[in-house]
Amino acid sequence: MGITRRSALALGGAGIISVSAFPLGSAFAMTTEAQAFIDEFTGGADVVEGGVTLTAPELAENGGSVPISVLADGAKSILIIAEGNPAPKIITFNFGELSGKSEASTRIRLAKSQDLMAIAKMADGSFKSGIFSIEVTVGGCG
């Protein structure tokens, strides 16, 4: 099958979105609801950017099941926030004494293309964060 007008348009559209989505981190502002969950987790403490690795596919075809993986050396717990979801709080990973390393993976639902944020609470009580920009083809929050 050749490239139809419809598929060409869809491809072009996706291209524009991905280009505009990539200069991330610069103008990153959380919705108030997402920010409330972050404040609840940190108790209003400062969050330092970096030190948390959040991995996911850059393009997720099925928003109903997006594999994500997070790693923050020395973290006691990690909160995952998806600001574009109707319920932005996704999951909190708490690592106990036998967890070996502060790394975990799961599969999550994403309503649309957005920035995912991971906030890690370190053993010394400080907070670190990591951001991952993700493009979702079909939303999974129905």
Partner: peptide
Amino acid sequence: ASFNGKEVVTFNLEGSVSENPYFLFFLK
């Protein structure tokens, strides 16, 4: 998850975790 009574991990899930929840984590 606990190993011989000691905590390994505890996860608090919300509605945005996919159906049939899958987890990967580590155990020392």
